[in-house]
């Protein structure tokens, strides 16, 4: 039997997840040695037809990053699903929608209006916006359908495992690869990261007072951030308590609060709502007007609480547009 076949694919993502694979550094050689890469558009010259020609389930595992927001992405996800034994949603966008998922606060029309017509950097006198079909001299050109809504990978295809993070850290990737190669896999649907909140390993935890209380909410550019003190204790919104651990506190160590890219723990239905509930609990104020003032001081609350997880949340998307 040959080496297990592996595919990498990207959907609506920034490319950071591809970088994360490269970031395995010398470890990537171990991976390459152990597997046969059959598809990796960002790095290797394979075509879709190469995938199509494989038998169903022939690919041992497909790592798919990015959310699903176009017809092509959905098609490729479904194709890879059909051809793969396992599908791993790789990175925050595939896992919970990620940054592209914030587009669910608007719709295709609004996005196109801004991107192609109204953004100040545009020069589009003909007011041309992309069409799925365009007739040109040589025939018909097509573009994939752009959806109103951004989906997580598991809203489009069946997903076996999730590697969380923006992007997933190398140690988690290696652990996942090792688990897959050894067949030592947890229950289907598992997120391959610790199932505790980030605070568990956060070095600032010791500075958090037992009765955390927030009187003012500040944004990171408004204050000199104490590099050792709990962000919430400084009045800075940090999604750490509502976010799964395992990232290695890369943001925290860079003196930036957690934005929630690892998603919630397995026990939480809706990361943003949970965080909002927790935050509301530690606002140290009894006067209703004052509470309102403090909560109103959060700029773009939906965007803050659902920075990464809007498509995976109970809200999914904005409906009143």
């Amino acid at each position: 039997m040959g080496k297990p076949k592996v595919a990498f694919y990207w959907c609506a993502s920034c490319g950071g997840c591809e970088e994360a694979v490269v970031d395995l550094a010398e470890d990537i050689l171990k991976v390459v040695e152990a597997v046969e890469i059959v598809f990796w558009p960002v790095a290797m010259d394979f075509k879709v037809k190469d995938v199509e020609s494989l038998g169903d389930g022939e690919i041992a595992v497909s790592f798919i990053n990015g959310a699903i927001r176009t017809g092509e992405q959905e098609h490729m996800a479904k194709l890879l699903r059909k051809k793969s034994g396992l599908v791993v949603a790789f990175g925050a966008c595939a896992h919970i929608g990620g940054i592209p998922g914030l587009a669910n606060f608007v719709n295709r029309e609004k996005i196109f209006d801004w991107v192609y017509l109204n953004a100040p950097s545009n020069d589009n006198p003909g007011k041309i916006i992309p069409q799925e079909k365009t007739q040109v001299e040589v025939g018909e050109l097509t573009l994939p359908k752009f959806y109103d809504t951004v989906y997580t990978l598991d809203q489009v295809i069946d997903v076996d495992y999730y590697l969380p993070g923006c992007a997933p850290p190398p140690d988690l990737i290696m652990k996942a690869v090792e688990a897959i190669l050894s067949g030592n896999l947890p229950e289907k649907g598992t997120v391959l990261a610790p199932d505790k909140a980030l605070c568990d390993t956060c070095k600032r935890k010791t500075t958090k007072p037992e009765h955390a209380s927030i009187k003012e909410i500040r944004r990171v550019h408004e204050v000199m951030l104490d590099p050792d003190r709990c962000f919430l204790d400084q009045g800075i919104i940090c999604l750490g308590p509502a976010t799964r651990d395992g990232c290695g506190e890369r943001c925290i160590n860079a003196n930036m609060p957690c934005r929630g890219c690892f998603g919630s723990t397995s026990r939480v239905e809706d990361q943003g709502a949970k965080f909002l509930s927790a935050l509301a609990s530690i606002i140290d104020m009894n006067d209703e007007e004052e509470i309102k003032r403090i909560m109103d001081s959060i700029v773009d609350p939906a965007g803050v609480f659902y920075f990464y997880s809007l498509p995976a949340s109970m809200l999914r998307r904005r409906l009143d547009i």
Partner: peptide
Amino acid sequence: ADENSCAGCMTCIGL
């Protein structure tokens, strides 16, 4: 409280 899952964020303490 599930002691194996608690990260000790202390949000609940004092509530």
